[in-house]
Design a protein around this nucleic acid. Sequence first.
RNA 1: CGCGGGGUAGAGCAGUUUGGUAGCUCGUCGGGCUCAUAACCCGGAGGUCGUGGGUUCAAGUCCCACCCCCGCAA
Length: 306
Amino acid sequence: MRIVFMGTPDFAVPSLQALIDSPHEVIGVFTQPDRPKGRGGKVQASPVKQLAQRHGIPVFQPERIRRDGVEDLRALAPDLCVTAAFGQILSQEVLDIPRLGTVNVHASLLPRHRGSAPIAWAILQGDEEVGVTTMLTDKGIDTGAMLLAKSLKRDPLMTCGELTEVLSRVGAELLLETLAAMDAGTLTPVPQDESRMTYDPMLKKEMGEIDWSQCGQDIANQILGLNPWPGCSVPWGEGRLKLLRALPAEGEGEPGEVIASGKQGLVIACGQGAVAVTQLQAPGGKAMAATDYLRGHPIPVGTHLG
RNA sequence: CGCGGGGUAGAGCAGUUUGGUAGCUCGUCGGGCUCAUAACCCGGAGGUCGUGGGUUCAAGUCCCACCCCCGCAA
């Protein structure tokens, strides 16, 4: 099939790579425009664009595909469009162009966690099962009929970033299976059960604020689910102490109070139970194990964290 | 030229202001104590102080250039 791929971040890269390695022909790639990023404000190409360019695939970066990408897409005359974390909403006009429709790779077990940050929300809500679903894109946000899905048990120590990496590879496999089944004509699109659907909003920076009156399990989920972005942190000296990795722990104390500091990491009392922060990052420093940090910067038991 | 922090033993840091013996916590190795231990005691090994140049009797420390890492802002 002649396929146009639409995607932007790292999550989309294995899917695009899988298509490139497959017998299908990737005739064009749509991705978000280059944006200033990183130190020094240099513009950077998205991971998907970088991969496409290495393979000499034409790249299109409309600000809004529904507004100024339609003609380019039409000119490519694809059989199928494949999207994976593209970051733009497709209009009906765009959806009508590919002869066989548009397949989306979504990193959740639909109909749960519709929206742009499904993996983070699965962790935030403490889901035991996570996964990827392929679906036929329609005009709504992640509302189309489901094609195939793959689920796995969530590792309760994984950060959102790590789980994203795992699921991006699962997504690539599932995409190939989906296309194969599509070719074979063995696919049966299944409408989503609207009564079970959840739509989760975009992540916001403020979500990284920690409320120590919450229970330890929830705070651990928050720390893992929001790593690497937006990240959880507490005020610390001139800057903020980033809490990168944590797990629920035993212990009692005033919420926000350090109740152990050493080999177990940095254990902080919560509204219910406690959390052991096991990886953190101080202002100006690199990420490190909490025990390593504490060797050079002891935090006495009894300290209150904001 | 967006703003800022940092690079010292395997890990995390202090020491740089005011140049003059390489220091702390931990790990590691050896020994001791203990029913036992992530505990405690004794002892040892381990460092081109990011790189290159300069100043000096003497540079981790002062000067110049460069490399690498990180935070904020976007």
